[in-house]
Amino acid sequence: MRIASSIVLAALGLGFAGAASAQDAQIAVAANFTAAAEELAAAFGAETGHEIGFSFGATGQLYAQITQGAPFDALLAADDERPAMLVEEGLAEGDTLFTYAIGQLALFSIEPDRVTGPESLEGDFTQLAIAEPAAAPYGAAAVETIVALGLTEAVADRLVTGQNISQTYQFIDTGNAELGFVALSQIIEREDGSRWIVDADLYTPIAQDAVLVNADNDVARAFLEFMQGEDGRAIIATYGYGFAGE
């Protein structure tokens, strides 16, 4: 609830916009969550007066940067593996670890009639875009889907790989790839093109976890609390994400 979240923020000394003690926080965010994170930061800033900075990228790359000493205050990953690894390695605060969203995979094309369902992967196309599966959980989910459908050999020589899910989306949005696997959140507001929301039983659930990296940054801690509140969850849901236990 807004009242409850305001109490938490006030207790942390963050409840007044423009406070002299305002701090910034720099948060590493999985690329699929870009739009949602920016809207969350705007809402958080309106309530507290604090500004959140983001670095977007593939979860694997962000994890590697944190292990190498990158000055991030928190990580919003696209999986539940890397945040847990940071906790195990003593690089993050275990009591702040939580699943903030369950992601959904989609097959998308800017062509209106290109994608109708899984059968579209057997159609006449030159390039199918996926995110780098070793670094991007949505890329790993795309590979699992292709394997589950028995289409590995059929698409192997037509795959084009993006460094992260944002670059993958760009390949499709520019028409360089006729179709590709993206996060539903990236296309949730688009009315053009064609899409298939991939059946959830074709890939491992994409549990997206968050964790505080810098225990001394109260702004980052409060932002994670805000994400778990009613207002934060409402914003996250508008981008097509689900929640654990639903």
Score class of each variant (00 low, 15 high):
residue 131 A to Q: 01
residue 131 A to P: 01
residue 131 A to F: 04
residue 131 A to W: 03
residue 132 E to R: 06
residue 132 E to A: 07
residue 133 P to A: 10
residue 133 P to N: 10
residue 133 P to K: 04
residue 135 A to E: 08
residue 135 A to F: 07
residue 136 A to M: 11
residue 136 A to D: 11
residue 137 P to R: 05
residue 137 P to A: 06
residue 138 Y to E: 02
residue 138 Y to W: 12
residue 139 G to I: 05
residue 142 A to Q: 09
residue 142 A to C: 13
residue 144 E to D: 14
residue 145 T to A: 07
residue 145 T to E: 01
residue 145 T to N: 05
residue 148 A to P: 02
residue 149 L to Q: 02
residue 155 V to Q: 13
residue 156 A to Q: 15
residue 157 D to I: 11
residue 158 R to L: 12
residue 159 L to R: 04
residue 159 L to E: 01
residue 159 L to Y: 02
residue 160 V to Q: 07
residue 161 T to P: 00
residue 162 G to E: 01
residue 162 G to D: 05
residue 164 N to I: 09
residue 164 N to L: 11
residue 165 I to R: 00
residue 166 S to C: 08
residue 167 Q to M: 14
residue 167 Q to Y: 12
residue 167 Q to S: 13
residue 169 Y to G: 00
residue 170 Q to E: 12
residue 170 Q to G: 07
residue 171 F to N: 04
residue 172 I to H: 03
residue 172 I to Q: 05
residue 173 D to L: 06
residue 175 G to I: 07
residue 177 A to V: 01
residue 178 E to R: 04
residue 178 E to I: 01
residue 179 L to A: 05
residue 179 L to F: 06
residue 181 F to D: 07
residue 181 F to M: 12
residue 181 F to T: 06
residue 183 A to K: 04
residue 183 A to M: 06
residue 184 L to R: 10
residue 184 L to G: 07
residue 186 Q to C: 09
residue 187 I to A: 00
residue 187 I to C: 04
residue 188 I to S: 03
residue 188 I to Q: 02
residue 189 E to Y: 15
residue 189 E to Q: 14
residue 190 R to L: 15
residue 191 E to A: 11
residue 193 G to L: 14
residue 193 G to T: 14
residue 194 S to G: 13
residue 195 R to V: 14
residue 195 R to T: 15
residue 196 W to D: 13
residue 197 I to N: 13
residue 197 I to P: 05
residue 199 D to N: 14
residue 201 D to H: 10
residue 202 L to I: 07
residue 202 L to N: 03
residue 202 L to E: 03
